[in-house]
Nucleic acid binder design. Structure first.
Lengths: 331, 331
DNA sequence: TTGTAAGCGTTATCAG
DNA sequence: CTGATAACGCTTACAA
């Protein structure tokens, strides 16, 4: 290749890395030769010689949840502009898999990495530290977290939801959540609900606390169980995400429960259908793509040596819609 | 590292690549040293010396559509088992971006690549051929495609949908589709509808043919336009995906149109809510994760030299539900 | 502005 | 079974 353009390999390298330091004529000659041979610089050689790989990594629980998919999407867009490619790893909510994926990425020389949540084995963070790979925790945010977080305070968000319902006069609550095991975000959400209710002397009865798969079906099944239970029926149900809430809403329609007159329902995420369904769902909107973009930007800044230590809070916003109302249906 | 274990670098290499050819004692010594130093073999050096990167690439239009996210998810799962990491690129439905992403991946030394659809610039396939990188086209399938496809025949799928409606007696149709530009799958779907209807001497009136963003909102807006138009109202609406169909369903409820008595509606993809919504949506289920798994498996087979030339058809299945019925509402 | 030459961290080929 | 040693394709001083 260098031969065809009749230059040294060093010059070829310069054409791609410091084009200004090469005379235009030579530059064109090299570029022309590259086109002719359909030649592309080899990234492995490049990485080895320069100790820069231009690779970033993202570890998410699963792509099957829209919120993580769009976070990756946002990251990818920002990184691609800077010529950085993205390695994707899914942990399937399993800390061991997350660790494996991180190790694989480290071996591959990722320069920076974004990881959803902070509920990971210490070895994971040790490995990151040892490899001196900057990282960001996404989708979670705590003031006192030892890591750089980009996301929001899950606890505070659910405090806000609970308070919204309390203001509407609700005093008997049920809660339907996705699995909390190994999931600091869900744990924080449940804690937020508990905390807000406790301030008013309220607790969720065990029979009104449901935890299971984050599906419409589980939402339906939970409402049915709650409604048919022996305990006093709740006037409000707080769901861990929109899928569950939509399940509750659909089952309520089937059981002839009037929403919000007899029952208020809240979700989380503000998926597309939340505002379209009838009754429309009160939920919290989170700009997950923005979380991805912020994470990417922060990591790029770190690479550039810019210490943009501004914490990355992407504030969720409560979307009050038809599924919540004054207790007793007064409106 | 080799020094700590008091062996040559060659031996270290063997421990990781051909453990059987190393005596157990030495092997353990090396592994112990690696743990102590928290050492991981460097992938760049490895790639350079072995001309194998253990990297695969996936190019999809967007992660914001669940079907592609789950395809990637399926691929990732299969590849991870084999120690192959996945580079992800999104084209945003833009052929130029797809080309850029492919080039970036080639430079990174991906060994195989999966690309959604075949509507790509010839340079893209040229580059792949020149680099001798095996690839698979996903989410599309044509008997006479020059590429190895893994997916399904979009045209045939929509012929099936149209025929289902024709059998129910429908003769006046509307169609609501996502943008067809640069999208061979959508073009094939529309062609399928046209073809099936034409066999019965039926065509979709221009005012009944809507193309726009694949959103619930566009579905709603389309139905409204169709219903308020001057042309004879259709008795059935074929939608390009479930989002659009759900929009149509919700708007029908709002306009007081009875489904399926006055209007039959079909979708495509069978998203979670399709069977839960009321009336439940007649649509086609596609196992997109399976498409991803098949694509990954095929690419692995090619790498292994296995010429598993079996074409990868993942058959969509028609889910007949409440949103379609006999024309005129006889049931 | 351009060329020379020494690595970067592995694997592969030979010897031993 | 293990060790030397030469690549692999690039970057980066340093020299010209």
């Amino acid at each position: 290749m260098a031969r065809l353009a009749d230059v040294s390999t060093a010059t070829v390298s310069r054409v791609y890395n410091e084009p200004d330091k090469v005379s235009p004529s030579v530059r064109e000659r090299v570029l022309a030769a590259a086109t002719t041979l359909n030649w592309i610089p080899n990234a492995a050689g490049r990485a080895l010689a320069s100790t820069r790989t231009h690779i970033a990594g993202a570890i998410i629980p699963t792509l099957d949840d829209q919120v993580f998919a769009s976070q990756v999407s946002g990251m990818q867009a920002v990184l691609a502009e800077r010529g950085i490619t993205l390695f994707l790893g899914c942990s399937n909510y399993d800390p061991a898999q997350a660790l494996t994926q991180v190790r694989a990425m480290l071996a591959r020389g990722v320069e920076v990495i974004a990881i959803v949540g902070e509920a990971h084995p210490p070895e994971l963070f040790d490995a990151l530290r040892q490899a001196r790979v900057p990282y960001a925790i996404t989708y979670a945010y705590r003031e006192d977290s030892p890591h750089h977080c980009i996301g929001f305070d899950n606890r505070a968000a659910f405090v806000e939801i609970a308070e919204h319902l309390i203001e509407l006069g609700h005093r008997t609550f049920a809660a339907v959540f996705q699995p909390s095991r190994d999931n600091d975000r869900v744990q924080a959400r449940v804690a937020g609900v508990r905390e807000a209710l406790a301030r008013h002397g309220i607790a969720v009865r065990p029979s009104h606390m449901h935890e299971g798969p984050a599906t419409i079906a589980f939402g339906r099944q939970s409402l049915r169980a709650i409604w048919q239970g022996v305990d006093k029926r709740p006037t409000a149900i707080i769901c861990g995400n929109d899928q569950l809430a939509i399940g509750v809403l659909l089952e309520a329609a089937e059981l002839g429960i009037e929403v919000p007159q007899q029952l208020s329902v809240t979700g989380f995420d503000d998926v597309a259908i939340a505002q379209q369904i009838h009754p429309s769902l009160t939920t919290m909107y989170v700009d997950t793509a923005e979380i991805g973009r912020c994470a990417a930007q922060y990591l790029l800044d770190v690479l550039d040596g810019k210490e943009s230590l501004e914490s990355g809070v992407v504030q969720p916003v409560l979307m009050v819609r038809e599924s919540t109302g004054l207790v007793g249906g007064l409106d």
